[in-house]
Design a protein around this nucleic acid. Structure first.
Lengths: 123, 123, 123, 123
DNA sequence: GTGGTCTAGACCACT
DNA sequence: GTGGTCTAGACCACA
């Protein structure tokens, strides 16, 4: 597995690992069902603590990209991706509805709301 | 008034009462100026000592959530609007944070997100 | 905060912590907006590593129960709970639809499917 | 045939081709017995050396995914049904695991879950 | 061998 | 003070 980690980057190492893996899954370089390097192996390969790799793998599993099986290894999850994205889309819409409701009820300024929104998006 | 008190809980009963009331005030279930049940009435209703209710009401008054008027009863303090706005502001921010997180994790297009946001706001 | 941790339990410590906190949130003992003990404080109190507490808090944050703010502390999230449960309900339904679709397409035995389902539920 | 090849990717091109084809076979986009484009045709189509395509096809034949018949072309191997069933079985298990996880995390009633499951199965 | 959990430190950034 | 990240070990359970 090819991974370039920048120690001096402000992006946490586990996040860099997550980004690299998701981009490879989304581009098809990592096919569904394919095995990933074991956490220890990858840790040795890129000179990073096992726990850091584990954290990246754990989060990717919760997000639906990977699937771990004790004693067997970690694999690219079957392609739920469209399903997951649909769900996340709906989740976003319901949060927006909530925001709109609150803004209406408490007459919060729309311009302020938009500025806030841009702030969060640009992070 | 809806209150669920657990006798076997490690949380002191007066604290459970305080939690329930503040949560109802902040969520808007108890509107500002609204009358709370009298100490004796509530004590009878939930089978709790009058002293315990009084302690809860007293502390809530000290903290600015309630206001008791001699001979008239206890009311939700009117100056909560700022408190509530702050609370709602934080609520909106937490929703936006979630939207931003999801958008980052699943690489959702920012322009589409903004369009959606305008859609909900203009409703 | 009152927490009883069993070191000899098969349930991981971080899971025991999560269970205790969610049950207190759902029962109202922990009101929305209320501060939780800091990770270090709780770690000292129950004699557990800071990282273990952190893991429990982290997962509770991802699940929508808590909200952490750097430099300030960790708080019970505003009551999105009904919203989140609705979303999770829909998520479950879409997974079930997927299962039903696959089972239909590949004529997988329904009884085997049910047995499998019971197996996973009873874990 | 839909193939996206990245020249600047760290994954060797023949591996990218293998990944794309296995993924399409396992997901059913390529049905058993279906003909694949000829080596020369595919090479021309995606602007890749004939040798590279041949290497990918050869390895996929060794792994049992494809079957080439002298003078006729290359086809998806017919005995994939078991492979696919295994894959689908694992897919179903992963969905069930997700359902069980959500149900545990958000304390969703098991009976309701079973009723829902029967509903979807009987459709 | 694999992943799953846990520890006891450390340093950083924010307030 | 708070949370956020990371390390270099350890032991367990599964296969």
């Amino acid at each position: 597995m090819k991974l370039i980690i920048r120690n001096n980057s402000p992006t946490p190492i586990y996040q860099q690992i997550k980004n690299a893996i998701t981009s490879q899954i989304l581009s098809g370089e990592l096919a569904e069902g394919e095995a990933l390097p074991s956490i220890r192996q990858l840790a040795a390969e890129i000179q990073i603590s096992v726990m850091t790799i584990k954290k990246a793998y754990d989060e990717l599993e919760k997000e639906g990209y990977l699937q771990s099986r004790q004693g067997k290894g970690t694999f690219v999850a079957p392609k739920n991706m469209e399903l997951i994205r649909e769900q996340k889309q709906r989740e976003i819409e319901s949060y927006m509805q909530k925001i709109a409701d609150i803004a209406n009820t408490y007459s919060i300024d729309r311009q302020a709301l938009e500025d806030l929104f841009h702030l969060f998006l640009k992070e």
